[in-house]
Amino acid sequence: MSNPTYTVIFYLFAAITVFSAAFVVFTRNVIYSAFSLLFTFFGVAALYVFLSADFIAVTQVVVYVGGILVLLLFGVMFTNGIMQTGQKSEVFHIIPGTVLLAGIIGALLYTFYTSHGWMPSETTLQGSIVERIGFETMSHYVLPFEMVSILLLAALIGAAFLARFDKSGK
């Protein structure tokens, strides 16, 4: 697709995603990291829409922004004290970390851009795929679907059990 509007919007969301992810990683303030992660999740959800996975995009917004980000913010507030939001987080291993960052990105991009071309299938996904997700969930993937629901229930009960208020210890 070489529609200029499409391209510009794609680059806009790509820039939002990448720069807010960089801000998550490079800022020292934990609260700033958490709020910047919000923009990363929204940017990634927009990229999912470009990949014609609109249902996954909505799930991303609901689960990541509504669930995981709130949990992370709760963790930040709980472990830093509500009043001292200017909490800085220490950094170590900065040299090996930078080498790893440059190495991973460089190696992957070198591989992607020098290997000769991906060949897209004749039948790429087009339009909305919500209906197909429904059929797949209830036919091929019904066993993993049920297993993941039980796993999620067990994990949430386990999390509530681990983080419960302890009367005797407190």
Binding site: A14, T17, V18, A21, A22, V24, V25, V30, S33, A34, L37, T40, V44, L47, L72, G75, V76, T79, S89, E90, V91, F92, H93, I94, P96, G97, T98, L100, L101, A102, I104, I105, L108, L109, F112
Partner: peptide
């Protein structure tokens, strides 16, 4: 490309940050 950059940033955060919450991010 975007995916590789996000992977690199995530690995960088896991490797260099001391705060456990930022490691989770």
């Amino acid at each position: 490309t975007i995916s590789a950059i996000l992977l690199g940033f995530g690995l960088f955060a896991v490797m260099t940050r001391k705060n456990a919450i930022v490691v989770l991010m």
